[in-house]
Design a protein around this nucleic acid. Structure first.
Length: 495
RNA sequence: GGGCCGUUAGCUUAGUUGGUAGAGCAGGGGACUCUUAAUCCCAAGGUCGAAGGUUCGAAUCCUUCACGGCCCA
């Protein structure tokens, strides 16, 4: 494929020629344009300017050219910066023959700086009547069409810069994402949490049940894993006396891609000493509400669902949730083995939809995921999960088959996951042993034995409430973005 | 991994029972000092995702592959 067809045919060639002419005439790529007025504040400052009037003084703006309308000796150019758009009112008799003629060579997509005085046209459009202007950067490729914008889903992900430049809705999502992240940090910082950074490259991965990415350190001559969670390092911080600690960062899981899964994603984990999972539940409600208020309100629309995030959220044990949806009581005496449970599933005619799992805990998980999870549209905390699938959570005092754990669901998605953290090193060792057995039985996601972590716990770990929260999913809910790819700037794609 | 749908100009798209593609925007030439999806006139731009196959003839039918979306696992 030759360069011309690859780069947009005649448009690219035309603009290359214009660039050559610009270069011959002077500097096309200056280093700055200062001082500069933001466009958004100008709209506020001159809101009262009446049609047909000019203001006193002079303003300087800069931005990308998003529209150009030539009317003989008058040209309208629309500049866009992060804060908004402003029309430049460009007249031959204000600019002179040479500078007015040079406007002919300005293309959509170019960056331009301009100076002049604020005015409002007879038709009522706030504008800058410019006295001078300069090219700040040349665009060689045609920008997406102005009216429809860029709608091709694939191009939006692969060339996110075009999506951001052409689609304000897309840009807004990422601005909101930043506000959500800031609100979460502010919430935690206010409560005395200490933000830390723990290793991304780990000699042993852990803290979740997932498949890792493996990499290699050449000098150390050893394989390392990209973290699947920060849990075990943050607990070491708790052991060390950082009583409230959190980390927000990327985790990596070598698993499938879907509307709610990306191989690298942003996770918040928090650990607080001397509290249990009930305390963490309240914190999650409040933190979510605060994040929601930062970008709008507590009522949001996600995938056609009207969702009310106002605390408090209902709390329901997994046992009751499954019983009310399926009629199966996973805590009953006749449901204690995986065979018992599968018999009950068959008796209810659910074996068509619920996959059969090798163990009781995994079977409960499948039953829940299939029959309950999709129905959890309004915010709800599901509590007391099976012991087997929760190797870091304390057993409930009343039934050792279950643990002090909750997951927060919104719109059928798991957003948070929290425990009263296991701090008994002997119990923790037993859990690891069970995980090793699961691994031997073929469960690739089973947890590895971590002696170094056990040793840390043996020095003494306070009672602790811990939390994991998926930040990408939180942003999805709060912005109404239907896919995780809409809230991750550069999502994972094939090819 | 499976099912369904999609891929046509830089962007947004039309394309009938199979008869070798039509438009808008952007870009080029021209007119225009209040437009804002500016308008008007002219000209140009396409190996129809890729590779095979059926056919006198394929954007269209078939097969395989690539990429994407939705649903399922």
């Amino acid at each position: 494929m030759d360069e011309q067809s690859e780069h947009g045919g005649d448009v690219f060639a035309e603009r290359r020629a214009k660039l050559a002419a610009w270069r011959a005439a002077g500097d096309v790529y200056p280093t700055e344009y200062q001082p500069r007025d933001e466009i958004g504040p100008l709209h506020e400052a001159y809101a009262a300017l009446e049609a047909g009037q000019d203001s006193a003084g002079s303003q300087r703006v800069a931005g990308r050219v998003v529209a150009r309308r030539v009317h003989g000796k008058l040209t309208f150019v629309v500049l866009k910066d992060l804060s908004g758009e402003l029309q430049l009112f460009c007249q031959l008799d204000m600019l002179g023959d040479e500078r007015y003629a040079a406007l002919e060579h300005v293309d959509l997509g170019d960056f331009v700086g301009a100076e002049g005085r604020m005015m409002r046209t007879r038709r009522g459009e706030l504008s800058l009547r410019i006295t001078s202007w300069q090219l700040l950067s040349k665009s060689l490729r045609p920008m997406p069409e102005k009216y429809h914008g860029l709608t091709s889903v694939e191009t939006r992900y692969r060339k996110r810069y075009l999506d951001l430049a052409a689609n304000d809705d897309s840009r807004d999502v990422f601005i909101k994402r930043a506000r959500i992240v800031a609100a979460v940090r502010h919430f935690l910082d206010d409560r005395g949490f200490v933000e830390v950074e723990t290793p991304v490259l780990q000699p042993l991965y852990g803290g979740a049940l997932a498949k890792p990415f493996i990499t290699h350190h050449n000098e150390l001559e050893r394989d390392l894993y990209l973290r699947i969670a920060t849990e075990l390092y943050l607990k070491r911080c708790i052991i060390g006396g950082i009583d409230r600690v959190y980390e927000m960062g990327k985790d990596f899981r070598n698993e499938g891609v879907s509307f709610k899964h990306n191989p690298e994603f942003t996770m918040l984990e928090t650990y607080e000493a001397y509290v249990d999972y009930n305390h963490v539940m309240t914190m999650v409600e409040e933190m979510t509400a605060e994040a929601a208020r930062a970008v709008g309100g507590l009522k949001v629309t996600f995938r056609e669902h009207e969702i009310d995030l106002t605390p408090p959220w209902p709390r329901l044990t997994m046992r009751k949730a499954i019983e009310s949806e399926t009629g199966i009581d996973i805590g009953a005496d006749d449901a204690r083995t995986v065979a018992d449970l599968q018999a009950a599933i068959k008796a209810k005619g659910l074996d068509e939809t619920v996959p059969l799992a090798p163990a009781w805990g995994a079977q409960v998980d499948d039953l829940f995921s299939e029959c309950v999870e999709p129905k959890l549209i309004q915010p709800v905390f599901i509590t007391e999960h099976p012991l087997e699938t929760s190797p870091f959570a304390k057993k409930t005092p009343h039934d050792p088959r279950f643990v002090e754990r909750f997951e927060g669901f919104i719109a059928g998605m798991e957003l948070s996951n929290a425990f009263s953290e296991l701090n008994d090193p002997d119990d923790q060792r037993e859990r690891f042993m069970q995980q090793m057995q699961d691994l031997a039985d073929g469960d690739e996601t089973a947890h590895r034995l971590d002696e170094d972590f056990l040793e840390a716990m043996e020095y003494g770990m306070p009672p602790t409430g811990g939390l994991g929260m998926g930040i990408d999913r939180l942003v999805m809910i709060l912005t109404g973005a239907p896919s995780i790819r809409d809230v991750i700037l550069f999502p994972a794609l094939r090819g």
